[in-house]
Design a protein around this nucleic acid. Structure first.
Lengths: 149, 149
DNA sequence: TCATTTTGTATCGTGCGCGATATAATCTCA
DNA sequence: TGAGATTATATCGCGCACGATACAAAATGA
């Protein structure tokens, strides 16, 4: 065992976690899109709605933080959801800078479609509940370890 | 245990693997970007170069397939790499439809920077080699399970 | 041979995603 | 109170990402 070995690092793409995340992220997005196009939703729009179904009336800032994206991405996304009549953007009464995102009846009604989609997706993975839980745990550990230094 | 329980499905965002993948993918992209901006590279450009460092002279089609993206995304990405002088696009002699992507000396020289970046990224995750391998294995299992039905 | 189909790239329109920047509202604290 | 800092959202330019479409080259097969 040489001294250099301790600092050796993967070179091949399939050993780099960026490659695993990048390609899997594309595959998941595409798989979801096949169900979401019937609802007229994109994958990022669907994930944003999922957050609102879980807790209605959230700030643009909060939604962006939870999804690890910038508000400069979330603002136009929310405006498109508003254009589709799925959410309303309400300026906060307490703090006039804040825009609260609130589901419309139509937006809330779409929640009824979610379990079927989730079920199809989980089945399509061919993975066990336990494997998916392990994956999620490792993903969160990676994500939360990468906070800016 | 009721009959409905067997068909019950996660509802909360942090139980959905799409949420884990989506947010982690953003976090990884941002973490890499912090190193790549010095090289003038984007994260997708860097991953594409990684494939070429491993095996030079690949078809646009192959690169796109390996990264699970469409050629309509890869074509302009490769053209930007060409504009930076990192690759050449050479029409194949055997099949005049095919464009082969070949590293320039400058493109190949950038490979020297990769190990340091990979090392920093791995260290930053705070995860063990074994955890990262488990993660990669689960990611590939998920990705390859989601092939279009 | 030659009409038909398939394959490989390219182009276009729309939406996502980021950093830089702008602007207004709020906060801080002298 | 009021000057300066901070915060929340919005805007802009560029690159990524996809599906739809176009088109030329190659493969197929009557």
């Amino acid at each position: 065992m040489s001294e250099t070995q301790t600092t050796d690092v993967p070179t091949r793409a399939d050993e780099l976690f960026c490659y695993g995340i990048y390609t899997t992220s594309h595959a998941v997005s595409r798989a979801y899109a096949q169900y979401l196009k019937r609802l007229g939703l994109t994958y990022p729009q669907y994930i944003t709605l999922t957050l609102l179904w879980e807790k209605d009336r959230q700030k643009v800032n909060t939604l962006a933080k939870v999804l690890r994206m910038e508000t400069s991405t979330m603002t136009p996304l929310v405006k498109r959801l508003e254009g589709m009549g799925l959410v309303c953007r309400e300026p906060s009464l307490n703090d006039r800078r804040v825009v609260e995102v609130v589901l419309t009846d139509h937006g809330r009604a779409l929640q009824a479609q979610a379990p079927a989609i989730t079920g199809c997706m989980i089945e399509q993975t061919g993975m066990t509940q336990s494997e998916l839980q392990d994956l999620q745990h490792l993903l969160f550990k990676l994500r939360d370890g990468l906070l800016e230094p």
